[in-house]
C-alpha cells in the first residue's frame, strides 16, 4: 500500500454554517450563548433566489451562505473562490419525499397538467447539490449521498476524498433534512427541520489564502459493529478525546475516560437523519472555536452500520498526521 502524498491528503475545516430554527450559529449547538437572532424559517426561507425550490433546497442554501462567509470565502459580490476547483457534497435521506408524494397525490386526482411546471428537478434529491453549485458557481464534482444514518459523516468522507484525489481544493458539504407531513408519517418521530454546511479545504489551499483553520481532518472509520468502530476510531487518541458527539443516547465506553464531554444533538434537535454528521462537524468547530480542548469524535450508527469521524484541534498537527483507512481494514462484526 502506497502512502498518500501528504500535501493533498491534509484536509482542514475552515467554515461552518447552520439553518436551524432558533439557532444563531454553530455555537448554539453546544449551548454557548451567541448574540443575535436565531434562524426563523418563516421569514428567512423567502427571496428570489429560493423561488421554485423545495424546502430541503431552501434550507440547504440558507446554510451554505453563512458557512462560506464563516470561511472567508464570500465577498460582497458573491463567492471568492476558483469555481473550477470547488465541489459540493450533499447528504439528505428524506429531502425530496414531500415533492414525490405530492406529485402522485396530484396525479391521482387530476391530470399531470396540475403538477408544477417547475417541479421536475425535485423528483431527484440531486437537485439540492445542483442548486448549491449554481448559486455559488461551483463547477467541480457535485455529489449527493442518501445513505441512511451515516450519510452525513459519509458526505464528509467523500468531500475529503475529492480533495485527496485532487478533484477539488474546496468542498462545500451540506447535510439537510426537511420536516413535513410525509417525513413525519414515515419516521414517526420528531425530526430536524434544518441544514448545516461545512467547508472543507486542502490544508495547502487554506494556508495559501490565509484561511483560518477551525479543525483538522484525522480519519473516518466505518464498520458493522458500533463498539468495534468506536474502539478503532479512538484508538491511541482515546485519552485525548475531549468531545464525543453521539448519534443517539449512548453509554460511554470505559476507554474514552471520564473527562470526555458527551453530547447527543438529537436531544435538542430531534432525529437529524442524513444531516447528522454535518451538524456534528459544525458542533466540533464551535467546540474548538470556544477553546475546547482535546480531539473531537463524532459517531452515527444504525443496525449493522456505524461510522466515526475524528477531528483534531486547529493548532494540532504533525503529531497526528492524516491517516489512510483502507476499507479492508475497516471494522467488521466479529
Amino acid at each position: 500500500m502506497s502512502d498518500e502524498p501528504m500535501a493533498r491528503t491534509a484536509v482542514v475545516v475552515t467554515g461552518a454554517g447552520l439553518a436551524i430554527r432558533g439557532l444563531t450559529g454553530p455555537g448554539d449547538l453546544l449551548g454557548s450563548s451567541v448574540d443575535g437572532t436565531g434562524f426563523d424559517p418563516e421569514t428567512e426561507l423567502r427571496g428570489r433566489d429560493l423561488r421554485h425550490k423545495d424546502r430541503a433546497t431552501r434550507l440547504a442554501l440558507r446554510s451554505v451562505e453563512p458557512a462560506l462567509r464563516d470561511a472567508g470565502l464570500l465577498g460582497a459580490g458573491g463567492p471568492v473562490l476558483d469555481g473550477t476547483r470547488s465541489a459540493v457534497v450533499v447528504s439528505s435521506n428524506t429531502g425530496n419525499y414531500d415533492s414525490v408524494c405530492a406529485y402522485v397525490d396530484i396525479a391521482a386526482r387530476q391530470t399531470s397538467r396540475a403538477v408544477s411546471a417547475v417541479g421536475l428537478p425535485h423528483t431527484s434529491t440531486s437537485a439540492i447539490a445542483g442548486w448549491i453549485a449554481a448559486g455559488h458557481g461551483l463547477h467541480g464534482p457535485a455529489v449527493t449521498l442518501c445513505n441512511g444514518a451515516t450519510s452525513g459523516l459519509d458526505a464528509l468522507h467523500w468531500g475529503r476524498n475529492l480533495i485527496a484525489a485532487d478533484r477539488a481544493d474546496t468542498v462545500v458539504v451540506t447535510g439537510v433534512e426537511p420536516d413535513n407531513d410525509v417525513v413525519h408519517k414515515l419516521l414517526g418521530t420528531r425530526t430536524l427541520d434544518g441544514a448545516a454546511t461545512i467547508v472543507l479545504e486542502s490544508a495547502t489551499h487554506a494556508a495559501d489564502r490565509g484561511g483560518r483553520v477551525r479543525a483538522r481532518w484525522h480519519g473516518l472509520h466505518r464498520g458493522r459493529d458500533h463498539d468495534e468502530v468506536l474502539r478503532t476510531a479512538s484508538g491511541s487518541l482515546a485519552p485525548d478525546i475531549g468531545l464525543w458527539l453521539t448519534g443517539a443516547r449512548e453509554t460511554r465506553p470505559a476507554h474514552l475516560g471520564t473527562s470526555v464531554r458527551q453530547v447527543d444533538l438529537a436531544d435538542a434537535l430531534g432525529e437529524c437523519g442524513g444531516a447528522l454528521g454535518v451538524v456534528q462537524c459544525a458542533a466540533v468547530v464551535a467546540h474548538f472555536d470556544a477553546g475546547g480542548g482535546g480531539v473531537a469524535l463524532a459517531t452515527a450508527s444504525a443496525a449493522g452500520v456505524s461510522a466515526a469521524l475524528t477531528l483534531l484541534p486547529p493548532g494540532h498537527h504533525p503529531h497526528f498526521p492524516g491517516r489512510v483507512v483502507r476499507a479492508s481494514q475497516m471494522t467488521r462484526a466479529t
Partner: peptide
C-alpha cells in the same frame, strides 16, 4: 460492510 447510495441523477 461498506456501501454508499449516491443520488446523482442521470450521471450517478
Amino acid at each position: 460492510t461498506t456501501s454508499y447510495t449516491f443520488a446523482n441523477a442521470c450521471a450517478a
